[in-house]
Write a protein that binds this DNA or RNA. Sequence first.
RNA 1: UGGGGAGUCGUCCAGCGGCAGGACGGCAGACUCUGGAUCUGCUUACAGGGGUUCGAAUCCUCUCUCCCCAGCCA
Length: 569
Amino acid sequence: MNTEINKENVLPETIEPRDFIRAIIDADIKSGRYESRVHTRFPPEPNGYLHIGHAKSICLNFGIAQEYNGLCNLRFDDTNPSKEDIEYVNSIKEDVKWLGFDWGDREFYASDYFDQLYEYAVQLIKKGKAYVCDLSPEEIREYRGTLTTPGRESPYRNRSVEENLNLFERMKKGEFPEGSKTLRARIDMSSGNINMRDPVIYRILYAEHHRTGNKWCIYPMYDFAHCFSDSIERITHSICTLEFEDHRPLYDWFLNELNVYHPQQIEFARLNLSHTVLSKRKLIQLVSEGFVKGWDDPRMPTISGLRRRGYTPEAIRNFCNRIGVAKRDSTVEIGLLEHCIREDLNKRAPRAMAVLNPLKVVIENYKEGLTEELEAINNPEDMSMGTRKVPFSRSIYIEKEDFMENPPKQFYRLAPGREVRLRYAYFIKCIDVIKDETGEIKELRCIYDPSTRGGDAPDGRKVKATLHWVSAEHSIEAEVRLYNSLFTKEDPDDVEEGKTFLDYINPESLIILNSCRVEPSLSIVKPGDIYQFERQGYFCADPDSIEGKPVFNRTVTLKDTWAKIKKKL
RNA sequence: UGGGGAGUCGUCCAGCGGCAGGACGGCAGACUCUGGAUCUGCUUACAGGGGUUCGAAUCCUCUCUCCCCAGCCA
């Protein structure tokens, strides 16, 4: 018994996805570096909502901490008050929690360290490794040089330590206007790495900070704040994305100069997803310019959008595990995300019948006024979810798509003279098609076989199709929102001359269906409730639902073989 | 034409001197009261050239291609 428990504890660790970061950590643990501790951090800037790309980083950082019995801090990188807001810190906390991760009492803010950071800057000045520079932003740019030509040294580079100390203190006191002075690291203006050409480490900003209020008018830059925040928190492995690779020499430089605890920065490739955009700038634009209805619009790749769409934390975590971690730029097909949510929901979503585009069917030989309660299975994948009763009567609705007057050979749903099964009900055969003046099909007349009650024919007769349906009088009306990909292009950033990603927004990314009919068991739903509408897909009750008129978001369709065939016809 | 990275099936990830593997997709079939699910089979890849080696995706070398960096953003 003991060995079995042991196995269970050990097994998940050995089957966890391996990657180059975990390989580095394994080696560090083995060599005893960082006392064999593992302590990571997830460091979002609170200037936007988290998206699926952040989920990759969250799963990586929190996942590694869990696997190695270490810790992961949630740290807000809030060094730029002009862009950041409390609204974002709240949404970020909610999203990380919802994804299933716990940072315990380790909720930190770079702004918690402003005093310490200031002290570090003073020490750097005292070492002659930082100076106050009076160059304007434009001048700094000119002096920086270009990618291929070295920069020039600032005329203020050789100020005395005393003068620098004095000036820096006066910057802090608010004696100088915004933009008039900066504190710069004194490194190497001819470095091939532009980050090392005397980078700005403090700038003057008269902005109210969401946590420190008006205490400060100078704020540290990312490169300066981040490495020391990691150091203060005794992070072991500081995992970030590839674009920070050439900031690593600077990360190391600061920590070495001040000879403080030194975490290792490791970079991995950020997630790209086909048919969507993940840059914060573009996401903000979609929201602020009204291309979507908000950060949690179900078409958004944000965590809150995915949540409203009906995605589960389990599916997202599973997706993040499957895509792996590496250093090469890559774009994951959205199909993999869809696969993950189907896989999860197939096991847990109760089934229901919903007719999205109703076509009335009258069963002529069924007794008028009669209602039968037929038993339906809630989830064939999980019989413990039980059964429910679905009312059946003489008038029902079926899906318009499930009938064709002149069907091609591959179509085996309802057609004139053809018999099909109504799920959990009866076999019916179409005997007449009623049209209006324009030739549009208004109603079908059918007859049923009473001996097939429940869906099986005693004579062993087979039908090729089973249709979902609802009783006309018992069903209730619902609104259904069908979502398709937000962009028509696999890579929305691959734009033609003169166009932007906004020109590739899918006009059919949202299709609202207002007169859907759903089975009566769906009259009371809570936002977030998930269902599989049989033969159609997974749907999730939206917060816009009102009593008697539920609203459902389509999370994802079921795999649809017929749709594939139809395309080829 | 400076610096930093990266090139393996259509896509993503393994493989670290010994038969190139998994997942998603695609195709074909089995099964099915969801054209769902499930199951089976198949398909396709080491950027290129030289070398080292009995043996190279892996080591060396040259070349090519792609990505990132010139915010007082992160």
